[in-house]
């Protein structure tokens, strides 16, 4: 298979993840669709409010939907979903937005989908930690105050974590733990996709 037949969506994703194309025969249009469906499936179970749209997108990609009007309707539904008041539903809406294009004309499709799903994984990790919106707000209030300094001088960036620890040790400990697990979850899905590209999940 020549490089001309490599799916542009997969080529972009490879570039984003730094995956060396060891087997170009596994990067055609069918592989791109299979990868997208695998990525969407990896976000299951879907929140009830998102389920219909996610299922419709999954079916549209799997069946090679060719009607532009249907894709346009899916995009409108995805945007409505991403504006949902519930953060988890809203993040699934971002996933839906990214997936709401036929891959044949979407170089950005898989890369946008990757980032959107990573954000879902990160949010879910944060919820699992018991890290709440109130915790986040409290941490940012303290960090902002520290970063402002005493009005005359501002602390060095590297000193900020230690100053946070001094100000509120318990919150800082939970903040640092949450940050670590959220980053791990985010990067974890990138690694799963990189492994798929390398042939692990086919």
């Amino acid at each position: 298979m020549s490089s001309d037949t490599v799916s542009p969506a997969i080529a972009n994703l490879r570039s984003t993840l730094g995956v060396v194309p060891t087997d170009p025969a596994l990067a055609g249009a069918d592989d791109a669709t299979r990868l997208l469906c695998w990525m969407l499936a990896a976000t299951r179970p879907w929140p009830a409010a998102a389920s219909d749209v996610m299922e419709a997108l999954f079916t549209a990609h799997r069946d090679g939907e060719g009607d532009d009007a249907i894709w346009s309707t899916l995009r409108r539904r995805a945007i409505d979903l991403s504006e949902h008041a519930d953060a988890d539903v809203g993040l699934h809406g971002r996933v839906a937005e990214a997936a709401a294009w036929p891959l044949a004309t979407a170089r950005a499709g898989l890369v946008e989908l990757l980032h959107a799903i990573c954000a879902v994984r990160a949010h879910q990790a944060s919820l699992a930690n018991g890290w709440s919106a109130a915790d986040e707000a409290a941490a940012h209030t303290i960090l902002s105050a520290i970063a402002e300094g005493d009005g005359v001088t501002k602390p060095a960036r590297d000193d900020i974590p230690a100053l946070f620890r001094t100000t509120d040790p318990a919150l800082e400990r939970r903040f640092a733990f949450n940050l670590h697990t959220v980053n791990t979850a985010y990067l974890g899905f990138q690694r799963e996709v990189a492994a798929w590209l390398a042939g692990a999940a086919r």
């Binding site: 995009r75 995805a78 945007i79 971002r94 937005e97 990214a98 709401a100 294009w101 979407a106 950005a108 499709g109 946008e112």
Partner: peptide
């Protein structure tokens, strides 16, 4: 912006 938002 995502492609979807930009298209909108």
């Amino acid at each position: 912006l995502t492609r979807t938002r930009l298209s909108l």
